[in-house]
Design a protein around this nucleic acid. Structure first.
Length: 352
DNA sequence: AAGGCCGCCAACCGCCCTGGT
DNA sequence: GACCAGGGCGGTTGGCGGCCT
């Protein structure tokens, strides 16, 4: 049954690359581009499989790769993204500027996984291995928060896929006149312009929660304007309403997408449109913020953290096992709340 | 000094997805 | 729709170097 091998392996070299081989590969790609990887080795005079060449290039030789020790910020980002996305290393890598998925994967397996285990946190589920009591009200809230995080992860995955698709489409549109390397908004880089086809994601991509004040606000950032919604104006009932009817919301998403494409709404205007929307789904959209706020507070409460919403990013990595769990969750939630990741919608968008 | 053990990481393997025909 | 090739992705392996006994 097996697949045909990617290339004829007879006589091909395996194992570590020599500096001479690196030089050949680099020189060839600099001069001709990689083109077809399968054809590359013979053209470049390498006794290697095309796949091996591609791996060597993408994981090591590419000039835009950052190598060396991971910073604390990068470690935190990896842990937080892993909590959201699981072992989706390529997706995680898109959020870490200039790091390869292979490097992140290795770093996780050799460093971070062990460190989390030491802290009493299951590196797979990101839950305390010995900690929280089961069956308490706090536990229920914790489970709710975890479920919501899973929803976020699904949304983030869908968003990444959509971005990837967008990148490909954009590449095709701009043809040969522009470089084909399109970063999927790595951390610390500005968000790419949202095209019309992904316009409905923009409110989430631009959404920020201000949790420092007692009355949390959900802010949609548009081109020049923003729309804020006080937490008191929405409630978790909307979140529940939204979550209980996935089929309805899917249809609503499709409908909304069509409407938005027709109307060509942009930025804050779209945000206003969403907030003003009569559809239960979009009430739910507004409820994302409020629901998320509730969830954040629930999560912090159930881990014994004061619920002032001040996410504590430092310390969850190097902290001791005792305080690790609460600051760990704070970090995960804090990251989602404060910046790089948008607060995704509780259900993955079926239309993407 | 030598052997064993362990951690790290580059590289490989095999499956999956996508686009072209 | 089926098939194929190319490329991407995640899991795993193998080799090297450092540490310990």
């Amino acid at each position: 049954m097996g697949r045909s091998p990617c290339c004829d392996k007879v006589g091909l070299k395996k194992g570590p690359w020599t500096p001479e081989e690196d030089e050949k590969l680099l020189a060839h790609i600099e001069e001709h581009g990689h083109g077809s990887w399968r054809a590359l080795p013979s053209k470049a005079g390498l006794q290697r499989c095309g796949k091996s060449c591609r791996l060597r290039w993408t994981n090591y030789l590419r000039p835009d790769i950052k190598r060396g020790k991971f910073s604390l910020q990068e470690e935190q980002t990896i842990i937080q993204l892993h909590a959201l996305l699981g072992n989706r290393w390529s997706a995680i890598a898109t959020h870490l500027s200039r790091r390869t998925d292979n490097e992140i994967k290795n770093y996780w397996n050799t460093h971070l996984k062990k460190r989390l285990a030491k802290m009493g946190i299951d590196p797979v589920t990101h839950k305390a291995t010995n900690g929280a009591p089961v069956g308490t009200a706090a536990d229920v809230r914790s489970a709710k928060a975890a479920a919501s995080l899973n929803h976020m992860a699904q949304w983030e995955s869908a968003r990444l896929e959509a971005e990837g698709r967008l990148a490909r489409e954009s590449t095709m549109r701009t043809a040969a006149s522009t470089p084909t390397s399109i970063p999927l908004h790595p951390i610390n880089l500005p968000e790419p312009t949202t095209p019309p086809c992904l316009g409905m994601l923009q409110p989430w991509q631009g959404a920020k929660l201000d949790l420092e004040s007692p009355t949390s606000t959900l802010t949609f950032i548009g081109n020049n304007n923003s729309v804020s919604l006080g937490a008191s104006e929405s409630n978790s009932a909307m979140w529940k309403l939204r979550s209980d009817d996935p089929e309805c919301e899917e249809n609503s998403v499709r409908k909304f997408l069509r409407e938005q494409q027709m109307q060509g709404l942009e930025g804050a205007e779209r945000g206003r449109h969403i907030i003003g929307c009569e559809e239960p789904w979009f009430q739910g959209t507004v409820g994302v913020g409020a629901g998320f706020t509730d969830m954040l507070h629930d999560a912090l409460d159930c881990w014994g953290e004061s619920s002032n919403g001040q996410a504590e990013l430092s310390g969850q990595v190097s902290g001791d096992g005792e305080s690790g769990s609460s600051s760990y969750w704070s970090g995960i939630l804090g990251m989602v709340v404060t910046s790089e990741l948008p607060p995704p919608h509780p259900h993955p968008p079926a239309f993407l």
